[in-house]
Amino acid sequence: MDGAHGSPSRPGFAAWAVIMALAALAVWVLGVDYALAQAAFVATWAIAGLGVVLVVGQCGQVSLGQGALLGLGAYAQAVFALRGVPAQLSLPLAIALGAGGGWLASLPARRLGGLYFAMSTLAFALVVEEALVRWESLTRGAAGLAVPPLALGGWVAETPLAQALVACVALALAWLACRRWAASRLGRAWRAVREDEIAAAAAGIDVARAKTLAFVLGGGLSGLGGALYAHWIGFVSPEQFGLMLSFELLMLAFIGGARHLSGALWGALVVVALPQGVSLAVERLPPGLAGAAGIEMALFGAVLVILVLLRPGGLAGSR
């Protein structure tokens, strides 16, 4: 496929077959609600992952603050939902806030590059987390906010089936948008910036604008992911959107394959569903071993290392 050049890729038939087989197996082994709840989280994380793929994979910028953008979307959605703003209005607002956050985070890119810029996104994430703690009148600070279920008109997405449905529809829309962007003039500009900023500028590409747009669009996707996440979890607190989340999202993109849109889905499957698979596998171990603290984490880590060794370009990558 065109992976080496980094243009948008679609998972082939075989990939879809694998995913469908995994889904069927999950439903069979786990039961419907458990499998659907996982599907909702996988799809939601894939939306956030698409945001990272745009910034990191397409435009070649390292963002360590994507978790904070997710937090902005989640908090926006929570605050609006608690004030009775209908989701049809609050979801676009959450996306807009994520996009706005992305724009803010991208400002230092005009002067900084590489690792220095990555550090500035890290600082941005810290500022957002701190703001969520401090702005108590709005966020109730560290005590967190309980979030009601997602209500679209008269329909309330309370069951895992409804949540999975909403998440998958949102993912499909996000996916189509990303495909359009990546295939457009903007997508080509991103990839040019990724390969060589100076050459891109020499070719007449507005580098700063390309970077800003990657962050704005990626931020919007993170905002959407965060808004849905807030509903699925039902409780948001600042600590959930700390640096760990940013690293998890970055890991998601690299494991899945940051240069491909489908990398977001593969990465989300690994980050969300693999620990559950590991947990099921651990139950089969002898009781002494299965009871060891942290064994699931250790096994998850081991599987990740193997994945990275076998597919350094990510699961969606060609090699």
Binding site: V32, F41, Q276, S279
Partner: peptide, 18 residues
């Protein structure tokens, strides 16, 4: 083991229930 991650917690709850 949810490792203090609410996302894993929700999945764990569903698993234990179902």
């Amino acid at each position: 083991d949810a490792g203090y991650d609410p996302k894993k917690g929700v999945l764990a709850a569903r698993k234990l229930v179902q």
